[in-house]
Amino acid sequence: MKQDQKKLDLKKLFVLLRSMFMLSACTFGGGFVIVSLMKKKFVEELQWLEEDEMLDVTAITQSAPGPLPVNASVIIGYKMFGFVGSLAAVLGTILPPMIIISLISLCYDQFRTNPVIAIALQVMRAGVAAVIADVVINLAGNVLKTRRTLYIAMMVTAFFATCVLGISAMVVILCCLAIGLLDLAWSLHKTKAKGKECA
């Protein structure tokens, strides 16, 4: 029985490593891109994580130092298989860029001036944008479904702040953390008042 479980874990561990590898190999354009790909993979396809959990993980990775994809891999790996999981996930994430850049650094000039590569990289952005759009439509829909004015307003404001005003993600996260703490204080206050009423 125990033997079986261990075997199954190894299989899953390999799935984790392979998923991270594939996602990392296909991620152009910054941390939030890979987060939406991870959300699609681990929440929608494999169903290892809940949607809220993935958003929490994103907030944590954004607040911690270091490259976002690595941070997210550490946490997702930890959740699945503890320390070994973290190691496997990080390995999957860093291997593709390490291999690709090592190869490129050997033939850098040919790479930079090759027109076919330039076109392929440009059109792939459209594909990446489509995947993110899909993820965002789902996520934003769920925020709207909460029907909490506060959350919807925060989403719109945060979008405007990062997109138009160019405020850094870190600042936005910290502001929302402050709002969250106020929200907590307010809800504690309310339940206390309610408790008194009932008594």
Binding site: F32, S36, L139, M154, F159, A169
Partner: peptide, 17 residues
Amino acid sequence: VLGALRPAVVAMIGSAG
């Protein structure tokens, strides 16, 4: 508290997208 962070994360993914 985490609930308040989630809409912002959605917005930032949208903005990056």
